[in-house]
Write a protein that binds this DNA or RNA. Sequence first.
DNA 1: CCCAGTCATGAGCATCTGCTCATTCCGCCG
DNA 2: CGGCGGAATGAGCAGATGCTCATGACTGGG
Lengths: 330, 330
Amino acid sequence: MPSPEELSHDEFELLARVATRYYGDGLTQETLAREFGLSRPKVQRLLDRARGTGVVDIRVSAPPWLHLDLERELRERFELQEVIVAPARPDQQAQREEVARAAARFLERRLVDGSVVAVSHGRDTGEVPRFFRPRQRLDATFVSAMGGSPLADAPTNPNEIARRMADRCGGRAIVMYAPAYVGNAEMRDELLRHVAVADPLRRAAGASVALVGIGGTDDACTMVRTGCFSVEEIRRLREAGAVGDVLGNYVDIDGARLDSPETARLVGLSIDDLHAVDTVVVVVSEGEKPRAVLGVLRTGVVDVLVVDEGNARFLLDVARGVETRPMTEV
Amino acid sequence: MPSPEELSHDEFELLARVATRYYGDGLTQETLAREFGLSRPKVQRLLDRARGTGVVDIRVSAPPWLHLDLERELRERFELQEVIVAPARPDQQAQREEVARAAARFLERRLVDGSVVAVSHGRDTGEVPRFFRPRQRLDATFVSAMGGSPLADAPTNPNEIARRMADRCGGRAIVMYAPAYVGNAEMRDELLRHVAVADPLRRAAGASVALVGIGGTDDACTMVRTGCFSVEEIRRLREAGAVGDVLGNYVDIDGARLDSPETARLVGLSIDDLHAVDTVVVVVSEGEKPRAVLGVLRTGVVDVLVVDEGNARFLLDVARGVETRPMTEV
DNA sequence: CCCAGTCATGAGCATCTGCTCATTCCGCCG
DNA sequence: CGGCGGAATGAGCAGATGCTCATGACTGGG
């Protein structure tokens, strides 16, 4: 498409006239067609061309704290439904709150009466209820999507998060009385047969929205900190290729599930379960490793990503690098 | 409507998000409504507001030689259907040609098969045929709207102009074998009964378009130069308040017709006849007096004004001045 | 605490818009 | 000179848009 200067005198004049009358004076294409003695489709094509050549310039001035460009690139690169990049904050807690606020806003506009939201554990997820404040009462159900962690602070346990979300909107919480990981597969299967576990899990699996965080695999990761795993266990997972987890399901850098013994001990939704959830919202704030996020994004279960600016940039850098050389270490 | 800076954080963010997805990504309002959890009319109102506040800025870059601003002001101030301001040219002849070219372009796009065009005399009008070149054969009829002038150069006589216009497009000319002004009213009435005059006049009165110039009232005006009037006669008209004429019909500065003896001797369309014509196109180039143009515009018969940049500015200056103090002399 | 005035909201509809497709027109090559 | 490929054109339609209007929420004053 040529630039305005490359246009012929006459065409430039025509485009400018038509565009001015259309965008400036608000006349309809049909009126213009009559005024200029053209057919309506012709006027439409002229307007297309006026836009294409830059005779008409439509620009949206975004506020400086928004990062619509980052959001777009992430959205397109990972084929996400929506990406929200929260503005950067000086300290980690403020950053976490900013991300949580953005996630809360998203839920406020997405949830309707009857929505069922599956909730994970985690510090990022745990901040969301504080900022969740729907304009009016919302008859939504929040259900734990995984068991609790032995040492976890109350506010970061799924049950507690679900409860507070429900309180905030006048909805209802369904909690799960079980630990995230049990001793062995048999015990897990036994628990899954128990109504106090089976019922919440069934509800969670049928949720329309899932609100989940992403965990890492270093020695200080949430799972270790909350006592779900020993340093030794997480090391084994790491050596097996795990880069992070959603709802306790560990994945490698390519988004492939890891069939470790730990998975068999997990009480919570599986990756397959998440696939069935309409809108999986991931909340990621400062402190996560981009490799973990990358692995989870590549599972293809994520629909909406709420992330801070720093992680967003890091994630894009990594993702961009990946295209040229296979990523081994970040 | 507030400026973007005066908007609240949240509103600015919302407007920018919606506007970016709409104008930038080309999503529909309905899609956005779903994405943002709003009703479609709400999205529409947000977009309205985004435009109004300047969050969205639509600008049309007009080529520098166009004067769409002048055109708009003239169009609005005189309630015209269309105004075309031709670019300024160094000398008078080039300027006349520029205006004539613009008028020709206008006719090319306005005339259709079957159109009937009433044509006046004059140097401006006389230049139009040279530039009139429809893309394809046009079955239009050009008819003299007034008689000829004794001393006029052939190319400025209505008959000649009509003939050349017809030649240019493959249409047909109807000429009038009569002088513009005859000795007295009785002779005029006698002529009007003659078929060679009555017939063209009837056709002209039923024209869909009239292409006319504007004459002044100074001692060197067209009517004097072409021998229609003596200097003495034009002086009397001037003293009676005449500022100019269309098709030999003199008007004062307020656009009121002058019922001078001359009008009764005129062989041509009256102002009333012109009112019945759908599209009256006035061609004005360098050398006209703005007072004459002003008077004629105020008759309310003019639909389309084709004018050079200099006259356009002068005309606007005069018209603007008039609003504050009654104009007596310019 | 109640009421009136104002404003915002979303259903519904008439109109406008974008697109597809058959057709025509032009230029090019055989 | 005649036929062919590609671009341009305008009819027609499905869907998007803008607007109006009835309704309901909020605010400020009695």
